[in-house]
């Protein structure tokens, strides 16, 4: 199973590298990105990775993620581009007072678009999967973006066989998703099989958390506002997905190794995005964000 998915993903990477003028790999430091990068390195071995990797840093990521990112990039000798909306960061945009949606728009979507434009990248390769969310089930592997990175669900190209249409006209760009057919459990099993290093936040450790609206949030630095009634507790928690720490809920768990984690995962019946606070407001929010140019 994993071999089949791996070969499919490698073929997609090679097609993107050969067909586009200037591709870039979108690296978000999470487990999917770690798998994406691992498969990319295999796709072009024995030659080096033929494109840079890009991280959009909101300034609100877990500190451990940034340390991990820099270490991986330097160990593997990768060209790392970090994109940021410096103006918005200087203005102090944050998820607490601006809300999750504004935060995402200003600190993620906008700098992603700007960095892609500035770098002249015509294809951005990302780790999105079709099982993540129901609007993703219709996502193409080669997903066309019109001028301004707009995703037009009605104007997507039919995909047949292994013959993607990679031609672009002025203003169009492509998003490419080599892991489209993978599921969350595939990702974890692959990480185990290939011994891929991932950020330690995925494993259960005793961490300082506060409970807000029923969600456990980790106090990663002193920017987290602690209200009067809030109690900082130390609990054994792990994260199922990683993003900005104020928007990523932890789950209580004792799974401190990969085997324990996969065992727990095979039991769990909640969807992955249940821990992502940005998706909660409306079930269509992912689709709306994508139309704005979000990944």
């Amino acid at each position: 199973m994993l071999d089949a998915l791996e070969s499919e993903a490698i073929a997609i990477f090679r097609e993107a590298a050969a067909a586009f003028r200037s591709p870039v790999l979108l690296y978000s430091i999470g487990k999917d990105s770690s798998v994406l990068l691992h498969v990319a390195l295999k796709a072009f071995a024995p030659a080096p990775l033929p494109f840079p990797i890009l991280h959009i840093d909101t300034g609100w990521k877990f500190r451990e993620m940034i340390t991990f990112r820099d270490r991986i990039a330097s160990t593997l000798g990768l060209e790392l581009i970090v994109g940021q909306n410096e103006a918005a960061i200087a203005e102090g945009v944050n998820p607490f007072t601006h809300g999750a949606q504004e935060h995402t728009r200003l600190l993620k979507t906008l700098p992603l678009r700007n960095t892609l434009d500035k770098g002249g990248f015509d294809a951005a390769i990302g780790g999105a999967r079709r099982d993540e969310e129901r609007s993703r089930a219709k996502e193409r592997i080669f997903s066309l973006r019109e001028e301004g990175h707009r995703w037009e669900p009605r104007n997507q190209r039919p995909e047949l066989w292994r013959s993607p249409n990679t031609k672009l006209v002025e203003g169009q760009t492509m998003r490419v998703f080599p892991l489209s057919d993978w599921t969350e459990i595939d990702i974890w099993r692959y990480i185990r099989r290939e011994k891929i290093e991932i950020v330690d936040l995925y494993f259960a450790r005793r961490r300082p958390v506060v409970e807000k609206d029923g969600a456990l949030l980790m106090v990663d630095d002193d920017r987290m506002p602690i209200a009067k009634g809030d109690v900082i507790q130390t609990k054994s928690v792990r994260f199922r997905t990683l993003g900005c720490y104020p928007l990523t809920a932890a789950i209580e768990s004792t799974a401190s190794t990969l085997d324990e984690l996969i065992a727990e995962m095979e039991q769990t019946k909640l969807s992955e995005r249940a821990g992502r606070l940005i998706d909660g407001s409306r079930s269509e929010s992912m689709e709306t964000k994508k139309q704005e140019g979000y990944f």
Partner: peptide, 22 residues
Amino acid sequence: LLTDGLQAEREQGITIDVAYRQ
């Protein structure tokens, strides 16, 4: 609700395209 994917098509009561589920 498990199989109809996009807001646009649910609003219009139509289905736009191929969806993949596993």
